[in-house]
Amino acid sequence: MKHHLIRLAAAALLASSSAYAAAPLSTIATPGYARIMLGDFEVTPLSDGTADLPMVDLLHNDKAATQAALTKAHLSTPTTTSINAFLINTGSKLILIDTGSGALFGPTLGKLTQNLKASGYQPEQIDDIFITHLHPDHVGGLMDQNKMVFPNAVVHVNQRDADYWLSEAQMKSAPASVTAFFQGAMASLPPYVKAGKLQPFNANGQIIPGVSALTSFGHTPGHTSYVVESKGKRLVVLGDLIHVASVQLDAPQVTIGFDSDGAAAAASRAKVFAQVAKENDLVAAAHLQFPGIGYLGAKGKGWTWTPANYTVRP
């Protein structure tokens, strides 16, 4: 059942490319980037767009309870879900954390590059890219029509994720429902490997000045969060430690069908959330409503979410 639901969710994303009425809809302008300062670093959340996903079925939770939580939060089913990435300007380097989905899904996604340009930067300026994990909605933006979108960037990813998602043998032994996940990684990373631009890492700790790895395995075998620090201020980029705030903040034990290891994913969420709440760190999440940046606070056995204040400016 789990793999069937994942296949349905992936099909829904792909089908969205043709799911339009004959009559044209009006164009709604939506924000594609924002700004917030972290010490001396400028942080620019970037939107890759949104996708409608059947969260009532995907979350490993009582369906009635999930529906009630979504309804309370004024969310529909399927549930509109943001895909966010984060650009860090350190003053000497431009660092991108995750790259969105590129052309791997429908027309509501793949907006990261245009929003990066709208924010005042060019893909060729990116020095380093840190990938939280190799799911298609995080690596698809690396490529555009067989060309590297970020030709001057070094790509960093946990070795465990690279070993898994770039392996033909692993793909053959995995359930058919996740074949597209392997294919997305294999379509996105090899050109960077060939160019000597992929630098996997194995442990926690600083990778480049200002950015450290924080392993948070479970969602994928090598899922990694990143700690960005400037002048004593810290931003923890969570990756996919949370997908649906209206459900998982109150019930953090709830996992999702996309998790490779649900129990490990829940344990990583508990550990990292406790750490950032205790330290009052700013956090950024890939799938919370754009711009996906704010603060976590402890509330009984769950958590609260306070969106950060931010400024839209050139």
Score class of each variant (00 low, 15 high):
S260W: 09
T27R: 10
G292W: 01
D240R: 11
V276G: 04
G100D: 08
V157Q: 09
D144Q: 13
H287R: 05
S17I: 01
V178H: 12
A213R: 11
M143T: 09
V244D: 04
P291M: 07
S246M: 10
L8P: 06
T79V: 07
M148T: 08
D127E: 12
G205W: 07
Q199F: 11
I36H: 04
Y226E: 03
D57E: 14
L8Y: 03
R269S: 04
A187L: 07
G239S: 00
P191N: 15
D281H: 15
G106V: 10
G196V: 07
E168T: 14
S16D: 14
D261Q: 13
T179V: 09
L112V: 09
A68E: 00
Y192C: 00
H156F: 14
I95D: 03
L241T: 06
A185D: 04
A195D: 07
F258P: 00
I6Q: 06
I97W: 02
E229K: 12
V139S: 06
A285P: 04
M55P: 01
L70F: 13
L96D: 02
F182M: 08
M55Q: 05
T255P: 02
G218S: 10
H223C: 02
G184M: 09
I28Y: 00
I28D: 02
V244Y: 00
L94T: 06
